[in-house]
């Protein structure tokens, strides 16, 4: 906070928010931020999520900055996907799911009427944990979002978006000759990359990725990691991963979740080399469970 010199109204709000976070319960475990000059894209404050009886996320406050990759790690079932799914309100359609707390996108509360949920989802794209291509052609899968938002107006423009997105995820050479075949006919890893391409095609501000490389071989993984690094210049990215190496490679900051609690968040290097919390240390050194 020491070198924050911003004067705009939005940033003042964010700074205030930042203060509250640091004074709250989480502040003890939240790592010291080194790049506070960066602006916040999304901030979650005191978020609680309940699935009927299960308390899946417990009072989590976490922020995502512009042009950063935030990785979320933690044991299975600790609520990583759940947290991610709050950020674009996709959990709204889960029956019995209840969310409290405040989540802001560029200073606007996403749960207030101010930001339409459809617009929110167009701005906060998501790659799901399980690949879920539409039962449509590969081409239509990717063209779906751009067509929906009238981002393309001709066949040529659509072609361009589709091919460039396929190229970005390294799928183009594999599917070039069957671009009109159903996306569901692809292999698991190809489907995963198709879903990433589909998300990119909408050109969101924030991309949420839930284990995007879980079904990929090392080469395709490297390709996606390069892509994430490249995307960082334009987007904010949150990536859930079970690979500590991946978190270390692609992310600037890392958050560790355990049983619905945010245990620790901080610079990736810091979290992995010098974790503040015993639980984090156990997890990253493989002594978990």
């Amino acid at each position: 906070m020491e070198n924050s010199t911003e004067t705009t109204n939005k940033e003042r709000i964010i700074t205030r928010l930042d203060d509250t976070i640091f004074q709250g319960k989480v502040s003890e475990t939240d790592g010291v931020d080194s790049n506070l000059s960066q602006k916040y894209r999304m901030t979650a404050k005191n978020v609680n999520v309940y699935y009927s009886e299960t308390h899946a996320i417990k009072n989590v406050s976490l922020s995502i900055r512009e042009n950063e990759v935030l990785s979320i790690i933690g044991p299975s079932g600790c609520g990583k996907s759940t947290f991610l799914r709050c950020l674009n309100r996709i959990n709204d359609i889960v029956v019995g799911c209840r969310i409290t707390g405040e989540i802001m996108l560029d200073g606007v509360d996403i749960n207030s009427g101010e930001l339409d949920v459809v617009e929110l989802r167009a701005r906060v794209g998501m790659v799901f944990q399980k690949p879920n291509p539409f039962p449509k052609s590969i081409y239509d899968n990717i063209a779906y979002g751009p067509r929906l938002h009238s981002m393309v107006n001709s066949r040529e423009e659509t072609d361009e978006v589709v091919y460039s997105c396929l190229r970005q995820v390294g799928l183009l050479s594999e599917v070039e000759d069957r671009i009109n075949k159903s996306g569901t006919e692809l292999s698991g890893g190809q489907q995963q990359r198709l879903c990433i391409a589909r998300t990119l095609a909408v050109k969101p501000d924030v991309i949420l990725m839930d284990e995007p490389c879980s079904a990929l071989d090392p080469i395709a993984t490297a390709k996606i990691e390069d892509l994430i690094d490249e995307l960082r210049t334009e987007y904010s990215i949150v990536i859930v991963t079970h690979s500590m190496q991946q978190a270390a490679r692609v992310s600037q900051r890392t958050a560790y979740f355990n049983l619905g609690d945010l245990i620790e968040v901080g610079d990736t290097g810091e979290v992995f080399t010098n974790p503040k919390h015993k639980l984090t240390e156990d997890y990253i050194t493989g002594r978990f469970g």
Binding site: I93, R121, G125, F134
Partner: peptide, 23 residues
């Protein structure tokens, strides 16, 4: 139909009726 394809469509910024009509 799996819920996941509805989620996929909504996450692309489609409205509910667009999701129904197109997916």
């Amino acid at each position: 139909l799996p819920q996941s394809i509805r989620e996929a469509s909504l996450a692309c910024g489609a409205t509910k009726s667009e999701t129904i009509k197109k997916v």
